[in-house]
Amino acid sequence: MQIVAKDLTYIYSEKSKSLAVRAVDGVTLTIDEGEFFGIVGRTGSGKSTFVQHLNGLIKVGKDKGSLKIGEFDLTDKDCDFMALRSKVGMVFQYPEAQLFAETVFDDVAFGLKNFYPELSPEETTERVKTALTLVGLNYEEVKEKSPFELSGGQKRRVAIAGVIVTRPEVLVLDEPAAGLDPVGKRDFIRLLKELHKTFVKTIIIVSHDMNLVSENCSRAVVFDKGKIALSGTPKEIFSDAKKVAELGLDLPVTAKLTNDLKDKGIIIDSDLTTDDFIQKYLRAVKDKGGAL
């Protein structure tokens, strides 16, 4: 499913002159099926408000632009938001906060039962099992456990399973690695990449971590004051260090090194992932005939 937003605008407290905030201000953006897409920007730049539109948690207002996701026209009054939400999964920051059921099984099945009440118990079991396996948990081991007795990292996986259980084609994650320790974080990113190979065709992450974006995203946009300030591949976005700093963001380490080396006359044309950066650096040094 392709996501097409045109001139999307959202204003908080629109009726009040003094409190009105244009949280999203005329955003035009296309996210293609299959992308691993990054949305970045400082706190309060409007990125959270924007992504909440994607599954209708915030409705597109009248004369506030248009938003289409695959077949769904979110501007249409008759848009089937339930069907949309089963196709566009949303994982909030610290998603483990939404766990509530007595067992892991029941919690994961919650969304499934809401979206597909007609599903047979066997089918439900099958889907819950698939979801838990996909997030790297042992179904037999955890299904009867209380979600609250799991470790932090496991809780987060259960929460993700509860979202992907409906087989969404688009998965939106807000700050997915927040609060995880380094290895937990690395494993989690790996999990997202695995999910990207399944029915989850498009992954959209909202993050403050520029290294995470440059390492994993095919494309990204930078939000600033509700508008899109920069967009393109990580390489394109992070090429203008001054602009990036103005937008309140850090450079990924690879971009910083690329800039510093450029000042010394060493041009490294990498896509800013660590591996590619190292390869291109090796080549550049070789070309210069430098001693290795």
Partner: peptide, 24 residues
Amino acid sequence: LKEIGLELPLASYIANKMRKNGIE
């Protein structure tokens, strides 16, 4: 560090990786 679930700071990690690739 890796064995006990920790990582290097990103800059150290990249430096080590570069060293493994033969960069002094």
